[in-house]
Nucleic acid binder design. Structure first.
Lengths: 124, 124
DNA sequence: CGGTATCCATGTTGATACTG
DNA sequence: CAGTATCAACATGGATACCG
């Protein structure tokens, strides 16, 4: 009548409202069209400059990127580093340790996205 | 020239653009403020009616819920079941097997959200 | 280069009312 | 109950120009 082995966190009814609120919190900070993408590119590159970053992310405008970066910085996912010793001043963005805690989320999303794409292709 | 053991998908530079595009695909279908929440509630309940669902999801309006459900149905995450034999007609929404493939994503987001909330509290 | 300011088009949402 | 229609309010986003 009962599973003897629990191999992964099951989605139980009790857990679920908790789940819901945690997922809500997560979506609140890393949701939206761009945030995770920026975080991924930043993790890929170690350090990257504004225009380079903009070029890396298809379709984002300077204004939106600028706003997103401010947001991400406030929440501790990104660090803005200014090299004032160079002229013209060089600004670099780097990902933080905290942004690396998102790795499991990124992996899960990436894997799901990959199989989803496969599924979509099969249906045509 | 080939890895003999792959123990977890590492975030490497080569993998990353692939990552990026997969995550993009995922966000495209399950992104936004409501979709994942609806999916979670549906998975929790097995079957649930429209107004019940609306009450379960804090702050969503009937119009938005209706649109989201249509979208989710189109993408195979939700099934709309009409019990025409009852008067007035009862409509129930149930989650599909395909929506269950999102379990790892939900778990990852939920766990991250939980520790994030903890972190935020500590900083005050 | 690394942004910001402004304007404007478009999209999204909320409130309310209404229907079968 | 299970939505839909309508309209107004607001948010978001692109385009362009501009600045230090």
């Amino acid at each position: 009548m009962e599973d003897t082995v629990v191999f992964e966190e099951p989605i139980t009814a009790q857990k679920c409202s908790e789940n819901l609120s945690s997922v809500e919190d997560a979506i609140y900070v890393i949701g939206g069209k761009w945030k995770l993408k920026i975080i991924i590119v930043l993790q890929e590159n170690g350090n990257i400059r504004f225009n380079e970053l903009q070029r890396s992310i298809q379709g984002i405008s300077a204004r939106v990127l600028s706003n997103e970066l401010k947001d991400l910085e406030l929440n501790g996912f990104v660090k803005r580093v200014v090299h004032a010793d160079q002229i013209p001043v060089v600004v670099e963005y780097i990902s933080t340790d905290y942004s690396r805690t998102l790795k499991p989320v990124i992996i899960a999303l990436s894997q799901w996205g990959k199989t989803h794409k496969r599924k979509i292709k099969e249906n045509f």
